[in-house]
Amino acid sequence: MPVLGANFRRDLEIRRYPVLAYALVPLAALVLQAWLPRVLGPYAWFDLPLVVTVYFALGRRSPIQGTLMGAGMGIFEDALTHHAIGINGIAKTVVGFLAASVGIRIDVENFTIRLLLVFLLSLASSATYVFVYRVLLGLDLEWNWFTELFTAVGNSLIAMVLFPLLDRLQIRD
């Protein structure tokens, strides 16, 4: 029966959002990511663009859309730093693709699974960043994994609050 097929289930659970949400939520995430560290100082252990990328990739369940969104967010983040443009871009591209690919296969409605995914994808993003910086580009970079661990935990906590809020934006039939 086609009703029980994987494609039907996937089509059924694809979330849709208003066009403004696709534009404003990522922009708000980027602006807050640039502004909040000034207020919180060294305790700004979060990556809002990553959380937003994961949310939309999980909700849309389209690897292409997840990839494009991750690439856009990452390149935008790179543009605000003084590093080469593309380092965060590659990391977020991989994260967007992985999140969407995982979203097809497992039940992402479960809250715990969502948080676990955010935690693991944050670490994957950091690992990709280091790989690109050190191996691909051959640049010197001192790295503190504890900070990345704290950032992953911070992202999970933010996702715990942000995901239910963003769920309210989706278009329901």
Partner: peptide, 22 residues
Amino acid sequence: YRNLLVLLGILLAQVIGLAVQV
């Protein structure tokens, strides 16, 4: 394989962009 091809295409474009900056 369109998903993978898009991913590889975007990654490749960014790697080339990085190579120009180093």
